[in-house]
Amino acid sequence: MELDADSDGRRARGAASRAAILEAATSLFCGHGYSATGMSAIATAAGVHSGSIYHAFGSKQRLLDAVMDSVADRTFAAVDRVVVETTSTLSGRLTDTARVLVSDPDFLRLFLLLALERSDDADVRMTVERVRTRARSVVVAALEPTLAGLDPAIRDVAADLVGRLALILLDGVFVSQQLDSELADLDATLALVTGVADLALSQLTAIVPATQPPP
């Protein structure tokens, strides 16, 4: 019984240490960037020894992967909850998705910092591409129901295009809010963005054939 208690205690301490490391790494990566953040700084912020980070994650790259997955899980779960509860319109779903990203900015901030600062690092680039692919799938799944009225022959291609456009627009909304957070009117920005999205959706039948490769 005592051995079981000791084992449970070790697991609990290990889980608490891991959570503290993830929280510290997320904060420092968001504030200073990935390349400028050393493992010793993360250890200090988390209140652990540097060796504990390597024991828990193995390397800085694997810690980055864990941070990105943790932040992405939280963000995508919030998007899933929102789109289930919101209207069935493209503008409604896009608006609520944007509000999720603006209210909890860690995901896009980390993603954009990584994309800009370490394009020459193959491992980091793979992380960026993997998470971006996952984000695109989540956005496509959230918006796809709005395309139910389209011809089935073009629906899959249209969903892919709408997902690409939505990510571009969401990136723009996020950057706009970060650069001018005190003055930017989120409602006005979202009205403009969703207006563009609705216009693009109305033109999809004309756009889709032009984007498909020749037979």
Score class of each variant (00 low, 15 high):
18 R>D: 06
184 A>G: 02
6 D>P: 07
99 R>Q: 09
202 S>G: 15
6 D>C: 04
47 G>T: 05
214 P>C: 08
63 L>H: 01
89 T>V: 07
15 A>V: 08
178 Q>D: 04
106 D>V: 00
26 T>L: 08
110 L>V: 05
15 A>D: 12
57 F>T: 00
22 L>T: 02
55 H>L: 12
84 V>W: 07
22 L>A: 03
100 V>Q: 03
40 S>D: 09
3 L>P: 06
128 V>H: 00
213 P>E: 11
173 V>F: 00
36 A>R: 04
18 R>N: 05
67 V>G: 03
53 I>Q: 03
49 H>E: 14
90 L>Q: 03
149 G>N: 10
214 P>E: 13
130 R>E: 12
37 T>I: 03
138 V>D: 06
206 A>I: 10
153 A>Q: 15
35 S>A: 13
202 S>R: 15
205 T>H: 15
8 D>Y: 11
90 L>M: 12
61 Q>L: 11
35 S>K: 02
190 L>H: 09
63 L>D: 02
188 A>V: 11
85 E>S: 13
167 L>R: 08
112 L>M: 14
121 D>P: 05
182 E>I: 05
132 R>P: 09
85 E>F: 08
53 I>N: 00
163 G>M: 11
9 G>K: 06
121 D>K: 06
204 L>G: 01
91 S>K: 06
80 D>L: 02
59 S>F: 08
213 P>H: 14
121 D>M: 10
44 T>M: 10
81 R>A: 13
24 A>K: 01
137 S>L: 10
52 S>F: 01
16 A>M: 11
3 L>H: 14
176 S>G: 11
156 D>G: 09
178 Q>K: 11
154 I>H: 09
98 A>N: 04
24 A>I: 04
78 A>L: 07
16 A>Q: 13
2 E>Y: 10
207 I>H: 09
70 S>M: 11
166 A>I: 10
187 D>A: 06
211 T>R: 10
123 D>W: 07
157 V>M: 12
154 I>Q: 09
23 E>D: 14
175 V>N: 09
184 A>P: 00
31 G>V: 03
69 D>K: 09
58 G>Q: 02
15 A>P: 02
161 L>M: 14
183 L>Q: 15
146 T>K: 08
174 F>M: 06
134 R>L: 05
21 I>W: 01
173 V>Y: 01
172 G>R: 14
14 G>N: 15
151 D>M: 05
101 L>M: 15
11 R>M: 05
153 A>S: 15
